[in-house]
Design a protein around this nucleic acid. Structure first.
Lengths: 147, 147
DNA sequence: ACTCAAATAATAATTTTTATCAATTAACAC
DNA sequence: GTGTTAATTGATAAAAATTATTATTTGAGT
């Protein structure tokens, strides 16, 4: 995952370039966004950092995510149940497949996506700028456990 | 739009069939869900009914939507900005195209949807149960106004 | 090291949704 | 039609999530 290390440095560089201070709290948040395997929530990030940083405040997490979002370096995933999760590894819109049993999230490459975007443009005459594509179902692991 | 009239009666019948009382407040909420042109929010519904029903409570709107949702007769659309909108006309998942200028929502028929679902299943080995597909962009009306 | 604007931490305020509960009322039996 | 009963309503409180406020602290440049 050298890709993730790059993301970490890309985000920090962007913060510097835009004149923001590089604080330890900020570094810790960026590290989790860029390197953690899953799609962490604000609470996830807060709890994890609190271990090494007992004075960490929830507001700091919110403010930093807001900042990094405004730089276009993290993707916010608001789910129908109201929960928000963040992806600092792929900050651009992309499809997600979510297991409704174990909450695992998979990110497929879909060849049919380009064609669908064209179909949408043709049919609606919209200029499509971005999208949000989620599929919900049961993953193979959970199907096996059910037997 | 005889379709929408049908939806109104289908929902009320389902409420009756499941032993729920048909109150004037409930009828008003169902009417908006089934007949209003857009995708109303809880607040929209509340404000609109308050005109004829000054004693209407927000909690009543929430409780009724929860009930109708549990009967599978309304689709809840939670958007990334945290807002929730409801569709009582097509209560099953379907793609939406949203104008980020005027908030207009269009519902296209996409031939490529079935193929994409198959591709998702093949690639991820998930059993796909439902989906949420939103495209965001600028509608042709708003593009014309910009000139 | 010094200065200063920016960031943090703690908390208050706001927003959205859900829970509580006494008063009301729709539906059914008679 | 009238009475009974359990569901529903309405008002408000509570809960949950996010944003705002502000005194204090600190990173970064001089």
């Amino acid at each position: 995952m050298t890709d993730n290390k790059d993301r970490y440095e890309i985000i920090i560089q962007k913060l510097r370039d835009n004149g923001h201070k590089i604080t330890p709290q900020r570094l810790a948040i960026v590290k989790i966004l860029a390197k953690s395997e899953g799609h962490p929530s604000v609470e996830d990030i807060y709890v994890q950092i609190k271990k090494d940083f007992p004075t960490m405040s929830l507001a700091t997490v919110y403010k930093n995510i807001l900042l990094i979002k405004s730089l276009g370096e993290v993707l916010e995933l608001g789910f129908p149940d109201g929960s928000n999760r963040y992806d600092g590894k792929k900050p651009y819109p992309h499809p997600h497949v979510i297991c409704i049993k174990c909450r695992k999230i998979v990110e497929p490459d879909l060849d049919s996506l380009d064609g669908m975007k064209k179909e949408v443009s043709l049919e609606t005459h919209f200029n499509i700028l971005y999208h949000r594509l989620d599929f919900f179902g049961i993953c193979s692991d959970c199907r096996i456990k059910e037997r």
